[in-house]
Design a binder for these strands. Sequence first.
DNA 1: TTGGGTGCAAACTATTTGCATTCGA
DNA 2: TCGAATGCAAATAGTTTGCACCCAA
Lengths: 140, 140
Amino acid sequence: MEPTTAMPDLIDQLRGCGITPTKQRITIADVLFQKKQHVSADQLLEIVRREDATVSRATVYNTLNLFLNKKLIKALIIDKSKVVYDTNTSIHHHIYNVETGELTDVSPEDLGLSELPQLPSGFEVEGTDVVIRVRRTHST
Amino acid sequence: MEPTTAMPDLIDQLRGCGITPTKQRITIADVLFQKKQHVSADQLLEIVRREDATVSRATVYNTLNLFLNKKLIKALIIDKSKVVYDTNTSIHHHIYNVETGELTDVSPEDLGLSELPQLPSGFEVEGTDVVIRVRRTHST
DNA sequence: TTGGGTGCAAACTATTTGCATTCGA
DNA sequence: TCGAATGCAAATAGTTTGCACCCAA
């Protein structure tokens, strides 16, 4: 892979967000947005290193935080010490298979969560996190 | 406070759950269920130590996990590394004030989240976590 | 009495940070 | 070139664990 010469779209996108497109950041962005999925920092580090073995754990964390600040990704807290990063930044929710760890997106409409409770006036909703934990019904 | 002689209800409740009511566990349960609120492990340790200075951090964690297993409390993950424990074990959701850290309960009815998305058959819902993050609208 | 519970400190996991080196523009 | 970005390792925060001592039954 030749990150600096290849995938100019990705580079432009980063630049457009005011992010200096370094080799590691491009590789990380490539993995994140290519394999559009929910990844933990550790999984991300592992995958990224398959493409560029020189990327450090610190850089992965720094880059994730950078992308978070720039709203390129969302952090998703699934469980105590189980954080995954989501490249889908539109409003949506999640179904979490507690047995397999599999995560599925749910659109707000499918949730019937159109109506929020009336908040005390003077407050605004910053975001709503919904995680539906499911498991396979065991016919045991 | 004389935990072993006072509050026999609490002791009976613990015993009823198959929990040996030790001095520390009674104090912790007292704090948790008296000040019916959402507390972090650290806050809990601090409050508990005001009643009994000899309680160790490890015991607080061990007891919280014990109570969790016995379904006496629920863990509530609010933010990356921000876990609070909730003595309200009925189905309900939360409004989180991101500025003050204040947590408010919301009943499922108030959320209009009566309808869950149809899951693939063979799955059952284990639980649904909803956190609505709010902030005061700044009239700046 | 005695096995489970506790306190302490060390271990562990996930993440952040300080600093010297390297790289992009 | 030169400041920003990186890698490394050490630091930090939150939680768990091993082990000797202690206490509830």
